[in-house]
């Protein structure tokens, strides 16, 4: 870039709900949601793994749907509900059933993939509870292991602890009063 062409960048104001709280901030056009969450809001539970949509460590929920925050423009969070792993835990510190199930099943090794897994699993459980059709065409009473696997295809665990992660999800569905 030419030296004298350093121009002032336009900042854009965005307002959204982050884990239930309304927040407003100014961002550059190219800021991705992952960086906004980690660097501006200092919520480090959302991880940066591959930074290219492959691993799911950066999964957050946008209006309830799981997205890769590393490939999501922060400007499009405007007006939306964003949930991160920090939003799962209760005010009194109790673990969310999804987190609890992951712990109980021994599904956490190094833990790097865990917050992304938890968010993806939570979105799947929510879709079941509300009786909505799940992306992945899951309409049976309880999802099969294969259906859970298909749903979690975008979440990699480099410790390869998939069996226990799927166990954790499966137990949740068995417990929930799903349609």
């Amino acid at each position: 870039m030419k030296k004298n062409s350093i121009k002032k960048e336009t900042l854009h104001e965005v307002t959204f709900t982050l884990n239930g709280k309304k927040v407003t901030c100014k961002i550059k056009g190219a800021t991705v949601l992952l960086d906004l969450i980690r660097d501006v809001f200092d919520l480090k539970g959302t991880k940066s793994g591959c930074n290219e949509g492959e691993c799911g460590a950066c999964t957050v929920l946008v209006n309830g749907a799981p997205v890769n925050s590393c490939l999501y423009l922060a400007i499009n969070a405007n007006g939306k509900q964003i949930e991160t792993i920090e939003g799962l835990i209760g005010h009194d510190g109790t673990l969310h059933p999804v987190q609890d199930s992951l712990v109980q099943s021994g599904a956490v090794q190094c833990g790097f993939c865990t917050s992304g897994m938890a968010m993806a699993i939570k979105s799947m459980v929510d879709l079941y509870e509300t009786g909505q059709h799940v992306p992945g065409d899951i309409r049976t009473e309880l999802p099969s292991r294969d259906e859970i696997k298909k749903y979690l295809e975008g979440n990699l665990c480099r410790c390869t602890g998939y069996v226990k992660i799927i166990d954790a999800a499966e137990k949740l569905f068995a417990k929930e009063d799903c349609r």
Binding site: G53, G56, T59, V62, A65, P66, V67, N68, L71, Y72, A120, P135, G136, D137, Y151, L152, E153, G154, N155
Partner: peptide
């Protein structure tokens, strides 16, 4: 899905749940 199952399948097999949302 009923009328164009091939379209359904192609979307279902694209990337991952997360990518398909957007």
């Amino acid at each position: 899905k009923t009328h164009f199952p091939v379209l359904h399948e192609s979307a279902h097999n694209l990337a991952s749940t997360q990518i398909r949302q957007v």
